[in-house]
Design a protein around this nucleic acid. Structure first.
Lengths: 211, 211
DNA sequence: GGCTGTGAACTCATTCACAGCT
DNA sequence: AGCTGTGAATGAGTTCACAGCC
């Protein structure tokens, strides 16, 4: 029953949809009511053909010869991405990164709310981070239940991240954003996205050497 | 002369090479001198076939029937990625994220050194961040020269990031890691990698809805 | 005439499967 | 016999190019 279903949209398409959303918001802020794949693609930094192909996954929301209605299209993408409801986020790890993430403007996107932040370090527990107070990692289960957490962010070292993935899975938190430098073994049914800063820097080093 | 040359390795391969490096270090720490594509692939979280294909780009460093010498292979990947020298990093933006990044353990990878951190906000300038003092963004050119910066990290809002890209390009800093939520227009010859936290969260929301 | 929606062509990346060396 | 290195097969993702509708 609670089995993970097949993904409907290619992941690359989903990533671009978020860019179209931002672009549509920018156009709306400029007072535009209608737009075309050319204009929108430019604003989103992609090529118009793939934009149209991406949108075609959602159905026909444009008008041939005319274009798209900005607000209508934005609304439709919002619904498709599941952004028409609230997501309650838990941050694990109250070090530099965890603290920064809990305050980071990018997390203040409509619909995402950081509900709690946990750490294992007794010296850290109880300290303030923005509106929140750092809680004890050992209370993970009760915090998840109390705050009805949907999404966890792992800002902890590699091995701790791997251990937490299993705990979170058991607690029914199936969506995780991990900053651990190590690729994690992911339990069935769980969705994990990784942001790997050290890999990004190393890729830049390689590219710099090439040029 | 200073034209960017064609990339030699596929970008996906470069990204995985960094994982092999980490995996090799882990194996070496366990005291292993030799390994095989199967063992290494498992540690790195990839399939053995693509690991061998990736390594074949670097030449033949394994022995058929035997495997790879851990230290030798690690050294070779290091050289290929340009990690056998120092990279001097500048952080632009001393907000939550910029400060966290300058202290983040992931940045302490051998060879990457944060040399300076800048901000536009007068209230921020002069404050301490770890070993560093926040300097004035208007001094960008002189800081880049003084610290011989190779890599810049953009931890500033969208439009500021776009403006800075051009300035950095003019100053000869051709490698940039951007945390701005907006895809940037990249001047010729410049290498930009993006980390987009809001996109990652939105993708997680989508995946959560699917499952 | 203009712009969408989409099949077909193409490019890029991964996996398979096996020849070749030790 | 065992494990690498790699051509061939497959799959995923992007771009092209145009038919179809306004």
């Amino acid at each position: 029953m609670a089995e993970a279903e097949a993904k409907v949209l290619p992941e690359a398409t989903v990533a671009r949809l978020t860019h179209y959303l931002r672009a549509l918001n920018a156009l709306e802020a400029q007072g535009l009511e209608r737009t075309s794949s050319g204009v929108l693609a430019k604003e989103a930094g992609v090529n118009p053909a793939i934009l149209r192909k991406d949108l075609s996954w959602l159905g026909s929301y444009g008008t041939r010869g005319v274009g798209y209605v900005v607000r209508e299209l934005a609304e439709h993408i919002n619904n498709t991405l599941g952004l028409n409801r609230d997501w309650r986020v838990l941050i694990l790890g109250a070090g530099n990164l965890g603290r920064a993430l809990s305050g980071y403007a990018g997390f203040a996107i409509r619909g995402f709310k950081v509900q709690a932040i946990l750490d294992v370090d007794p010296a850290m527990i109880g300290s303030r981070v923005g509106q929140l107070q750092v809680e004890d990692s050992r209370d993970l289960a009760s915090v998840v239940e109390r705050e009805e957490i949907n999404i966890a962010v792992l800002a902890v070292p590699g091995q701790a991240a791997q251990d937490l993935i299993y705990e979170l899975s058991d607690l029914g938190v199936n969506s995780v954003l991990s900053f651990a430098p190590k690729p994690l073994v992911v339990p069935r049914g769980m969705n994990v996205r990784r942001v790997d800063l050290s890999t990004e820097l190393q890729i830049l080093a390689y590219l710099a050497v090439q040029s």
